[in-house]
């Protein structure tokens, strides 16, 4: 079995649309996030993802700088910023994830004209919660404030990319991505004046603030 897999992965040739060249890709997708907040509060979010990847491809390897921007709506997440603020917040949530991504393209073509790849990399994220509805437990939270988390974590994906003769054919790709992030820092920002935002509080995030992410992205190579 192992030998068969090795043959499939290494010796059956496939034709990528470009080698030794730069490329820009973009995708739209759906994401599911399980967010754990303070005091065992949690929420499951389903939303949209915008994905872009810019990088250099060798023969089977590709090094990308990727961004995954997710949108969704959270309900009743418990936030704590030191001793200064505790609140339960519901509202829009947006996460910007930047991932230096290493991709490995196998030679395996599991579906017609589409070959399999794996990718993984560390993630650096900013998660922003808008405070549309909130209950303040201690401290002060005003209209127009937003709460942001700085997260670090890891992203890994498995996907298929269309085999085409030229990059100009805009080969498509589909990937399933798993992510795990842990919050390092929490900040309360006064965004009531969108010309000039102001940091109100900032502190280390609690030890249990983490997110599990599942994404399905469908995109193309632009050029």
């Amino acid at each position: 079995m192992l030998r068969l897999l090795l043959i499939l992965f290494l010796f059956i040739p496939s034709a990528h649309s470009y080698y030794n060249d730069w490329g820009l890709k973009g995708a739209l997708g759906m994401n599911y996030q399980s967010i754990a907040g303070e005091d065992e509060s949690s929420d499951n979010i389903v939303g949209l993802t915008v994905n872009t990847q810019f990088g250099y491809r060798w023969d089977q390897f590709e090094l990308d700088l990727a961004s995954y921007v997710t949108f969704g709506k959270s309900h009743n997440i418990h936030f704590k910023v030191g001793d200064e603020l505790q609140a339960i917040v519901s509202g829009m949530v947006r996460t910007v994830n930047f991932v230096p991504l290493l991709k490995f393209y196998t030679h395996w073509v599991p579906i017609q004209k589409r070959n399999l790849y794996f990718s993984a990399g560390p993630s650096f994220s900013l998660r922003t919660f808008w405070t549309n509805n909130y209950t303040v437990l201690t401290g002060e939270l005003d209209e127009g404030y937003k709460i942001t988390y700085h997260d670090t974590g890891i992203f890994a994906a498995v996907g298929i990319e269309e085999l085409s003769t030229f990059k100009e054919e805009n080969p498509s790709y589909f990937e399933i991505l798993f992510g795990y992030t842990k919050s390092r820092k929490i900040t309360v920002v006064d965004a009531s004046n969108n010309q000039k935002v102001r940091v109100v509080h900032s502190d280390e995030a609690g030890p249990n603030i983490r997110t599990i992410i599942l994404m399905f992205n469908l995109g193309i190579t632009f050029f």
């Binding site: 900040t187 969108n194 935002v197 940091v199």
Partner: peptide
Amino acid sequence: FDQDEPFWN
């Protein structure tokens, strides 16, 4: 990571 509003970013 800047904290700017979506209008800018």
